[in-house]
Design a protein around this nucleic acid. Structure first.
Length: 476
DNA sequence: TGAAATGTTGGGGCG
DNA sequence: ACGCCCCAACATTTC
């Protein structure tokens, strides 16, 4: 019996899935496969929060497939061995999958494609995650872009067709005698129950992604004003859904364009959000063209930068949200509780780590990698290199955020801080971001104790130290 | 999508 | 009435 295998990885959806569509177009019965092979990601194997999401997203995909008469076949890696074994069990003639952009995945997929094609099988990779493939965007000199604005100006001209592919009207599945691991046996869920906040915040899976998109469309025109306010639900919160491919950027853009019909000014108002989709595109292209940047500075001038040697207690305080700077601690606790942090606050905590503490950005990248449900090697790498001043189109190193001013500007009522740092619930908004400056009698009256009466570092001194360190490596 | 230091301007208090 | 000074407000420069 001939069949076509759809090898799902991080394209866990039925809509706008070119690989799935290509498999259906063969007219052959389908086998939907997931191969669990976390070691194949090398050093950047998914962390605990990502695993939590993956478990639920795989379950959601399996549920969707079962509703259509099929199911998800789950096997353990190595991927090539699992695929070739399944080919033997099914007499498959074709394997379809969606392109990934991490260096380890590219290398693995290349070997698998070569092997399958050498053995006479159809082995096709399709684009599921980007508007434009990275090898189709370059400067006039033929180089990859390192600056966002010209990159995006070029890339948008290539976004011609944003009509997403519909989910297959009907799917015919291969006979259901194939063995499958249960998703539970992959042991993706935490052994101790720290995931209540994740459950309360997220609904992994394609239906959850579509529901989130639907909610966001109504607010998208306000994104430009609201996106910097962590105390307001002003962002799309689609990042983990995008990471796992439960929804595609094309679907999002198409939905925005549909909502804009009959309202000519609407697309202009959502442009700030579309631009963020552009940044997502940009960082994926960067990772493709500069794969070493997961661990090494893109700007090699920083290779001699005098980063401080991390102090375990201070690094731990940053991770756990006990630095004494309310906006920083609120962000780190939001991350721990929900697996996500508002982007404005990500910039603040990253500036704090790489500049006030002067720790190498890799320490932040590793912590985010383990704790974010949207941990994405392209976005995480570029985001941390941007914050640390070592990346493409990066914030210059001397651009140091002041957590007091940032807190006052973007959490003016202290509502975000109070939500995640309950110790400060009794502090008036006017002083909540700098409570250590109050006189002791006021501190006592407002219940200010511990690090909030005495933060772990001096902002002015650490800023001066960072600038001195920056001066020591000289200009270009 | 920076903050702080430095420079400039102009209104108003005051002798 | 006038010059002087202070300082808030804004602009520019620097890191």
């Amino acid at each position: 019996m001939s069949v076509a295998i759809v090898w799902f990885r991080r394209d866990l959806r039925l809509i706008d899935n070119a690989a799935l569509d290509a498999a259906v177009q063969t007219g052959l019965p389908i086998v939907a496969l997931y191969v669990h092979a976390p070691d194949e990601a090398g050093e950047w194997r998914p962390g605990a929060a990502s695993d939590w999401w993956l478990h639920h997203s795989l379950s959601a995909l399996d549920t969707q497939l079962r509703a259509r008469g099929g199911r998800l076949i789950v096997r353990r890696g190595p991927s090539l061995a699992a695929i070739t074994r399944l080919i033997g069990e099914t007499e498959a003639v074709a394997v379809f999958w969606s392109q990934l952009y991490e260096p380890a995945a590219i290398a693995r997929d290349h070997i698998i494609q070569q092997q399958l094609q050498a053995d006479g099988y159809i082995a096709e990779s399709h684009n599921a995650a980007l508007f434009v493939e990275p090898w189709r965007v370059s400067t006039q000199a033929g180089q990859p872009y390192r600056v966002f604005t010209p990159f995006w100006r070029n890339a948008v001209t290539q976004i011609a067709d944003v009509l997403p592919i519909a989910a297959p009207a009907s799917m015919r599945f291969a006979d259901a005698t194939l063995s499958s691991e249960s998703i539970d046996t992959l042991a993706l869920l935490p052994t101790i129950s720290w995931d209540a906040g994740l459950h309360a915040t997220w609904l992994p899976g394609e239906l959850g992604a579509l529901a989130r998109l639907r909610d966001f469309i109504d607010e998208a025109a306000r994104y430009g004003d609201a996106r910097n306010r962590p105390d307001v639900a002003g962002t799309s919160m689609l990042s983990p859904h995008l990471h796992f491919g439960e929804i595609s950027p094309r679907q999002i853009l198409a939905a925005l364009q549909l909502a804009a019909l009959g309202d000519p000014g609407w697309m202009d108002r959502v442009e700030p959000y579309v631009r963020e989709l552009g940044w997502r595109e940009f960082v994926h292209h960067l990772l493709f063209h500069f794969p070493h940047t997961t661990n090494a500075n893109l700007n090699r001038r920083f290779d001699d930068f005098p980063w401080a040697t991390p102090d375990t207690a201070l690094l731990d305080a940053w991770q756990c949200g006990r630095s004494g700077f309310p906006i920083v601690d609120a962000g780190m606790r939001q991350l721990w509780e929900t697996g996500w942090m508002h982007n404005r606050v990500r910039m603040i905590v990253a500036s704090f780590l790489t500049k006030n503490l002067r720790y190498h950005w890799i320490h932040g990248a590793r912590w985010f990698w383990d704790t974010l449900v949207d941990a994405d090697l392209a976005a995480n790498t570029a985001g941390w290199q941007w914050a640390g001043g070592t990346g493409a189109d990066a914030a210059p190193y001397f651009r140091i955020f002041n957590p007091v001013l940032q807190g006052e500007r973007f959490d003016p009522h202290g509502a975000y801080v109070k939500r995640y740092v309950p110790e400060l619930a009794g502090v008036p908004a006017a002083v909540i971001h700098k409570a250590w400056l109050l006189k002791p009698s006021d501190q006592a009256a407002f219940g200010i104790r511990g690090v909030y009466a005495r933060p772990l570092l001096d902002l002015a001194q650490s800023r001066a130290d960072a600038l001195a360190a920056y001066a020591s490596i000289g200009r270009d």
